[in-house]
Design a protein around this nucleic acid. Structure first.
Lengths: 112, 112
DNA sequence: AAATTATGCATAATTTTCTTATGTATTTAG
DNA sequence: CTAAATACATAAGAAAATTATGCATAATTT
């Protein structure tokens, strides 16, 4: 098993958390921030990131603004009103998920 | 996003933890125990469980003994020596994974 | 000055991992 | 006596990632 396979399925809540905390971010920035926060544990690949961001935009969860930084394009993403509601739900689900997996890292938790 | 998608990639460490703690288990028993531990949060489907168990056996991580319980078959799985080593590694990875995702459920953790 | 790395987006092909559906068979509960 | 639970297995399909590829500019290294 690849270590990275653990993150499968968690990318969406990760992105929602970033946008919730930082308001407005562009894709590359998200990859760098996650790398920093997780101390290199998680490196989001572009092939996973961009298609997901596009899906979230289609679903009306995020909206975009494209800006030029010198000659380079940046596409900024931010949560819509609906996206903020969805994020709250996702955070609750994530919390429940983490708690239900506690027994793996701390098996004694199920005894006491 | 389906709630259950969060668990993607986590099934293998879950099974390894169960076998580590309980020594010897059969498939159906694993599904029931996980359902109980997670208070119904996680229901392992047979289509995910059995193929994975077979893969782990091929890889020499688990070994099996088939027993008859009345007229019904039970296929018991237990960790091999190599499987125990692999489990220790997997538990460490799982711990790192959970910690690196802490910021999602508890964003203030990255400040203090 | 040239080459490499970093920044920044995007998509296609493939793989991994799961869900859903199907199949077989015995036991228990209503 | 029928439905649900127990117990295994596999195939078809979907979901979500990795890997590979492509384009382009900026900064850094050699």
């Amino acid at each position: 098993m690849k270590k990275s396979s653990l993150y499968k399925g968690c990318l969406e809540p990760i992105l929602l958390r970033l946008l919730k905390d930082n308001g407005r971010m562009y894709g590359y920035q998200m990859t760098q921030m996650v790398k920093e926060i997780t101390k290199g544990e998680l490196n989001i690949t572009e092939g996973a990131l961009y298609p997901l961001l596009h899906k979230l935009e289609e679903q009306g969860i995020v909206e975009t603004e494209t800006e030029m930084n010198g000659n380079r394009m940046r596409k900024y993403y931010s949560l819509t009103k609906a996206g903020k509601k969805q994020t709250a739900v996702a955070m609750d689900e994530m919390k429940a998920f983490m708690q239900s997996l506690e027994f793996i890292v701390n098996p004694k938790a199920i005894i006491g």
